[in-house]
């Protein structure tokens, strides 16, 4: 039958044609399984990883699920990565527990694992290359308090209520406020899934409910941009916005003064340090178990400083 042959041919062709585009592991090869791949942040991590790979003369692959709820998809990715017998694996766990059986397999096969972005609750990873989210969010709280004079109402637009970064950034902020600024009241914490549009709507609702709000903290790029949009759409003035991460829209907002400032992690550094540590581990060298990849606070004045500009992404 004509159609049958056509489809079989096409499937075979798809399978074979994609071959040449594939990056084959020759020599040392590191597989990175991240929490995502579409987001600018992860793209920056990937570019850092590629930079390290180039310097060290190794190859990498970089993969992540479509969104940060897909725990089982990430595990399937890890399983596929293991099949390729990499020299080492970099892994940013969406849920540490779920991945443990596979991490054990990797361990048994003698493949070293480096955790990145956030830690893995297990002693299998040799090292963790991550931002200290609690400390970074606490810095955001400090800056917020500075801007609003240590008193008033603030709100948090967080990106997720289940992921570790979501929880840590929220709690880092809340705990700092509770501990050091008794006159600041956090009126609400809302979750916008890191989606700009959802976060915009949330912000507008918060502003409607609290017309006397002094400041809002957006816990990741999408949330922060959503907050800026929400405030702009409502035409509210005098609300201090502190963001997180970078990206073109957020950088523009800081330059134009809409946003007071933002915390930036060092995504390029995370990717770079992960690959570097992975290769060192694979080569049997000793590495630090905690690799702090650092964070910075930046605003309109410091945004173009070389050490800041280097870690920001568009």
């Amino acid at each position: 039958m004509f159609s049958r042959r056509t489809i079989l041919g096409t499937i075979a062709a798809t399978a074979l044609l994609t071959g040449p585009t594939a990056v084959f592991a020759e020599g040392e090869y590191v597989a990175l399984v991240s929490k995502g791949f579409q987001h600018q942040f992860w793209q920056a991590v990937q570019s850092g990883a590629e930079q390290a790979a180039e310097e060290l003369g190794v190859t990498i692959t970089f993969e992540g699920p479509d969104n940060e709820t897909m725990v089982d998809k990430q595990i399937d990715m890890l399983a596929a990565a293991l099949a390729n017998k990499p020299a080492a694996i970099g892994f940013a766990a969406l849920d540490s527990q779920a991945a443990i059986p596979l991490l054990r397999d990797a361990d048994a096969a003698g493949i070293p694992i480096i955790a990145f972005d956030s830690g893995v609750d297990s002693d299998i990873p040799l090292a963790t290359a991550a931002t200290n989210n609690m400390a970074a969010a606490a810095l955001a709280a400090e800056k917020m308090a500075e801007f609003i004079g240590g008193k008033g109402k603030v709100a948090v637009v967080a990106h997720d209520q289940t992921s570790r970064t979501g929880i840590e950034r929220r709690d880092g902020f809340l705990e700092k406020i509770a501990a050091d600024y008794p006159d600041i009241e956090v009126v609400t914490v809302q979750y916008g899934a890191g989606d700009q549009l959802k976060s915009t709507e949330l912000t507008k609702a918060i502003l409607t409910a609290n017309p006397d709000l002094s400041g809002i903290f957006g816990t990741n790029e999408g949330s922060a941009i959503g907050v800026v949009n929400g405030v702009t759409e409502m035409g509210t003035e005098g609300v201090v916005i502190i963001g997180y991460d970078s990206g073109k829209a957020q950088k523009d907002a800081i330059r134009s003064g809409l946003m007071a400032g933002a915390i930036t992690q060092n995504p390029v550094g995370i990717g770079y340090e992960t690959v570097k540590a992975a290769i060192m581990a694979a080569r049997g060298e000793t590495i630090d178990s905690e690799i702090d990849t650092g964070f910075y606070y930046y605003d309109a004045e410091t945004i173009d400083n070389p050490e800041i500009a280097a870690v920001l992404y568009d």
């Binding site: 595990i75 779920a98 289940t162």
Partner: peptide, 13 residues
């Protein structure tokens, strides 16, 4: 069972 946890945000898609 596979994740040894119930992930409440998972499922869409």
């Amino acid at each position: 069972s596979r994740l040894n946890s119930a992930q409440p945000a998972l499922g869409l898609g």
